[in-house]
Design a protein around this nucleic acid. Sequence first.
DNA 1: GAAAAGCTGAGTAATTTAGTTGGTTAAAAG
DNA 2: CTTTTAACCAACTAAATTACTCAGCTTTTC
Lengths: 157, 157
Amino acid sequence: MKLTTKGRYAVTAVLDLALHCEKGPVTLADIAERQKLSLSYLEQLFSKLRKAEVVKAVRGPGGGYLLGSTTENISVSEIIDAVEEKVDATQCGGQGDCNKGMACLTHTLWQDLNDQVHGFLKGVSIASLMERSAVKQVALRQDAGPQDEPQIVTLED
Amino acid sequence: MKLTTKGRYAVTAVLDLALHCEKGPVTLADIAERQKLSLSYLEQLFSKLRKAEVVKAVRGPGGGYLLGSTTENISVSEIIDAVEEKVDATQCGGQGDCNKGMACLTHTLWQDLNDQVHGFLKGVSIASLMERSAVKQVALRQDAGPQDEPQIVTLED
DNA sequence: GAAAAGCTGAGTAATTTAGTTGGTTAAAAG
DNA sequence: CTTTTAACCAACTAAATTACTCAGCTTTTC
Ligand code: FES
Ligand code: FES
């Protein structure tokens, strides 16, 4: 099973987008700045998100990205599926053939785990994430800007 | 989140062990043969499993491995935890600090996913796996030996 | 004392990840 | 119509991780 920063970044970025796209398109530069992510890396992720129609792009000045659907209709599962090749717990990729061409002892277990994870992630929408108090708090802090950014003190000689 | 062949191999191997340890210790060589796994790799995994007391070792000729507990008391979760460093969906390792030292927008989501996966894997015991008809069938096939192993035909010149 | 098995640590090839570089288009602003 | 903005795209790279192998040691039985 694979759930790496790729998927996590994507969800974080789309959530940030959702929190800021009321007044029009949001640029990747803004998202990168707020979430401390690499702009070029985000571009790659959003390329995939656009192809999966999770987001819509607006080119040119004043452009940026918009959500491809309502916040209720975008699930975390969709976002991760768009950027990761597969969130799959099985070895065989669902083929049931990792013991010399036949099912291994634990194939059904990993399939069940797949269903479990997928079901959970499918049930979480961007809208429901936005309602969480923890998310609201973090968003508030990030929007306030870096005015009280903890300063790293380096002792120089 | 990390669920790789390491964890899958471990569960498969322990399940194989459970299915064959009635008449005494089972050697890793046997398990490797039946499950088509690398012997040296299994040795590494069982070293960790032994330290986590999931299995017991018996050295010398006639030796091998036994379960460290009853099949009802060994959960899949335990096995994976023993060999993988961590099955953790968060970026921060639970510290809540991946946005320049503070919680990122999606921290709570990954924590919830963690609970979900962990809860599921904790609920599956070796005993319950052994009762599955799919597992029984695969075990039967594997015990019958390689008599009708599908022959790979290579065209030589 | 030879063989069977477990035990251990170091090393390695392949793969994947996370990210950079260096551009090009499309659209709006001036 | 030129400049600027921001999306779009492909290729490349460094670092990390994984899935192993190899070589040798230790314990126990026959
Ligand atoms: S995981 Fe599907 S056959 Fe082994
Ligand atoms: S995943 Fe924990 S702070 Fe981001």
